[in-house]
Simulated scan of single mutants.
Amino acid sequence: LGLFSLPFLDRYERWQRLNAPAGEPPVKLGRTVDDTVEVFDRPSFSATLLQVYWKDLVFEIDEVTYGDEKPRHNRVWYHIKGEGYAHSGKIQPVELRLNPVVRSVPEYGRLAEVTVPYTDTLRDFHNPQKLAYRLYYSTVHWVMDVAQDGDGNTWYRLWDDKFKAHYYARGEHLRMLEPEDVAPLSPTVPPEGRRIEVWLRDQIVIAYENDEPALITRASTGGRFIDGDYTTPRGVFITNRKRPSRHMASEDLAAPNSYDLPGVPWVCYITGGGISFHGTYWHNDFGKPRSHGCINLTPQAAHWLYRWSLPSVPFDQNTWIDEYGTQVRVI
C-alpha cells in the first residue's frame, strides 16, 4: 500500500530521502488540500499560470513569501521547488517522519498522531482492497490494538468514535503520544488568570495569562454557506468539555457542503451543541470564516490551547467533562 500517489513517486524516485535522519530538520513539504491548486510564475493570482495540481499531491517547499495585497486575509505564498508559486491557503504544511512501532498498547488504548502527509487505512489489513479512510498529517487517533501481517508489517487498529468501527493503519506512519504531549501548560497560572477571546471581525484568537497575551493566532470561525448561516455565536462560554480526537461528520453526508473528517485533533468544546476550538487539516486559509460554527485553528495552536485551557485531561481519557473551564469570550 503506497504512502503517496504515483505522480509523487515519479517526481521523487526515492521518497525515503525525505525522511530526515535523526537530529536533522525534515525537508519542508506541502500537501494540496483542494481538488485543484494553481501554480504561478510569481506569488500572485494575476501572474502567469504554469500548471494545476490535484488533491493530495505532495511536494517540497523551498520558500515562504508574501504576495499581492489580495487576498487580504492571507498573503502567504509557498514556492514549490523547481515549479512555481502556490497560495498557502490550499496547502497543508506537512512532514514525513517514520516512527518506531510498538508491540502492544494498554487496554484503554493509546493516542497516536499521523506524522506523514497521509496514510490509507484498511478495514482488513489482510485484504488491501478493503480501503477505509485516508488519514492526514497531524490527525490524532486512538490505537486499540497492534497486529502484524504475513510480511512482518505492523498495523495499528484504530477506533472510529463517530461510526463505532475499527480500521487499520501502518504502524510506522503514526507516532505514539506520551504523557508529556498532553501535560498542562503554565500550571502556576490560576484559573482566574486565564481567559480566551475570539475576535470574529479580525478572525483571531487570543489567550491571556493575567491580562497578558500568551497566544495570538489566526482562526477561521463559522461562515455563511449555501445550506445555511453557521456564524459562530457571540457570548461568554467555558471550555468544560474536551476530546483529544474526534471524527466530525455531517448527519447527512450527501447534503450540500457536507463534511466527513476523521481524527480532528485537540477539541475544546464551548457549547453543548458542539461548537469548539480544534485543529484543522483540510485547509490552511486562516483569517476568514470557513467553518460550520467551530473555531478552526492550526493543529499546533489547537494543541497548545488544549493543554493550556482548563480542565486538564488525563492521558488515558478520550472524553473529559467538568463543571469548570477557562472562560471564552466570543466578540
Results as ranks from 00 to 15, higher is better:
G193H: 11
V146F: 01
G152K: 00
L305P: 12
F125P: 01
T232S: 12
S5M: 13
N240E: 06
P191Q: 13
F237C: 09
W54S: 07
S46L: 00
T232W: 02
G193E: 09
P128C: 02
V146G: 02
S44E: 00
S245T: 09
G222S: 05
F59H: 04
V328I: 05
G2N: 14
V313N: 01
V143N: 07
A207T: 07
T280L: 02
S138L: 11
V39N: 00
H247A: 02
G2V: 10
P128V: 04
I238S: 13
V52N: 00
G89N: 08
W304E: 09
P289D: 04
I295Q: 04
T221E: 12
E113L: 11
Q327E: 07
G23Q: 04
D41Q: 03
A22T: 08
V39L: 00
V140I: 09
L18N: 04
A47W: 01
V27N: 14
L9I: 12
L174M: 15
W15T: 15
F225Q: 15
E197L: 13
P191R: 10
Y78E: 08
A214P: 14
P187A: 08
Y167D: 09
Y66C: 05
V52G: 02
A254L: 15
T32D: 07
D285W: 04
V64L: 05
R194S: 11
L177G: 07
R307D: 14
H166Q: 05
Y156D: 01
R42M: 00
D202I: 03
M144I: 07
P117S: 14
D252R: 06
L49V: 03
H292G: 01
P191A: 14
T298K: 10
S258K: 09
C294N: 07
K28Y: 06
E69S: 11
A302R: 07
Q203M: 13
V140T: 10
P213Y: 03
V27I: 15
E24F: 09
N318Y: 11
W320R: 01
P21A: 03
D124L: 04
Q51M: 15
W159S: 07
K90F: 13
Y324I: 02
A169N: 04
D56N: 15
P314Q: 03
L98K: 02
P7A: 06
V94Q: 14
I238F: 12
D227M: 10
I204V: 15
Y66I: 09
I206V: 15
T232L: 04
R31P: 14
F40Q: 01
K162C: 05
G152S: 02
K90G: 08
G89A: 08
